[in-house]
Design a protein around this nucleic acid. Sequence first.
DNA 1: TCAAAAGTGTTAAGTTTACACCCATGA
DNA 2: TCATGGGTGTAAACTTAACACTTTTGA
Lengths: 227, 227
Amino acid sequence: MLKRNFYREYPKFYVAVDCIIFGFNKGNLNLLLLKRKFEPSKGKWSLMGGFVQKDESVDEAAKRVLKELTGLDRVYMEQVGAFGDIERDPGERVISIAYYALINIDDYDKESVQSYNAFWTDINNLPGLIFDHREMVDKARTRMKQKASYKPIGFNLLPKLFTLTQLQTLYEAIYGETMDKRNFHKRVAEMDFIEMTDEIDKSSSKRGARLYRMNNDAYLKTKKFKI
Amino acid sequence: MLKRNFYREYPKFYVAVDCIIFGFNKGNLNLLLLKRKFEPSKGKWSLMGGFVQKDESVDEAAKRVLKELTGLDRVYMEQVGAFGDIERDPGERVISIAYYALINIDDYDKESVQSYNAFWTDINNLPGLIFDHREMVDKARTRMKQKASYKPIGFNLLPKLFTLTQLQTLYEAIYGETMDKRNFHKRVAEMDFIEMTDEIDKSSSKRGARLYRMNNDAYLKTKKFKI
DNA sequence: TCAAAAGTGTTAAGTTTACACCCATGA
DNA sequence: TCATGGGTGTAAACTTAACACTTTTGA
């Protein structure tokens, strides 16, 4: 079908995507941020972003941009929303759509990340960010926290096998509050889709800790989640 | 400052806003929808929408479009998110950002609504909608329901003075489930910002029902809400 | 042998749910 | 006087929160 210019008289805009990339490292949530090497805003930090292209949906653009930086495919991503203030980008008007991604901090393309001058930074100690990126991060964090309370998305931040202590410190980092170990174990035991394995992790204690695994198929059947 | 064409090589897009306008009528949530008088998709229904202009933010565009249809200012609105599939609008590529609005169904510009060929329709019995508008509605409804459970936004759908029965049927419509009258009254009594007035509404019963009022300043101080 | 993290149950407090009858009034 | 919607309290079930000691093992 030949497209007609129905909307000829309306203005057009650059549309970008920006990615809030969460990782979990040593008990803290981290973000993967790019450090600007040049002016303007040299030394300031920014989210990984890119422009939407003609041949891709906005969701696809976000996936592409994430892959460009991390080399990762099939990552858990959610849209945070559109940011559309006129002067949000002082260079030129750009409407940006923010997404958050959850990745395992041990598993990404280190060379690519280095080439972009990107670094993991503690989310509780963020440097100055350009434009409205801080606002995007705050909104993403709130959304992620909320979602994590009723869907088991946190596992995307952990290795396939994890200890209960790792899982608990992860949720403590997400919620920003400490939890009781016995109550936590009890809740995990009630969720059949968090499966105990035969394996023991010896890296964090002499005694060793039992490793667990998330079984997503089992989750899809039962669907009760509450941490 | 003279703007430089930093982003010259990137494509530009039409950006629209679409409004999911909620009302509450006779125990049911309703949406204000436009009925198409012409082809293509004559007889199909659509959300009220419009294109973002150069001199306004995306949020401002949504407010403008809502006002164009309803004549209302300072309405409770939330962004639902961006819809960016390539072929979502079969005429031409348009990226659309959806917003939901909560209005009192007795209080809008009837002439303007009529001139747009817009009608209130029961949300549980929606007609066929164009493009991805059904998806927008579903997402808006989910978001609104979730928000209504922890912030007192429902009051935007009611007159300033309302009975507890009205409030209860509203929340029953939002959650899609019936509630116990005594438990509901108990919860309302715990919220100091839902104030009993001296007035009685005689329109729905012989005995008459006490009218209540939401006090937003009081809410901002206490901040505990749970219906 | 001891330091360090892992593992393990019970009780009290708080919250949520279930449930039925009387009241006031206009027609 | 009666039909209609408005108003009211209590007890059981369930959920959440608080709390401390023993186990294992490598250094």
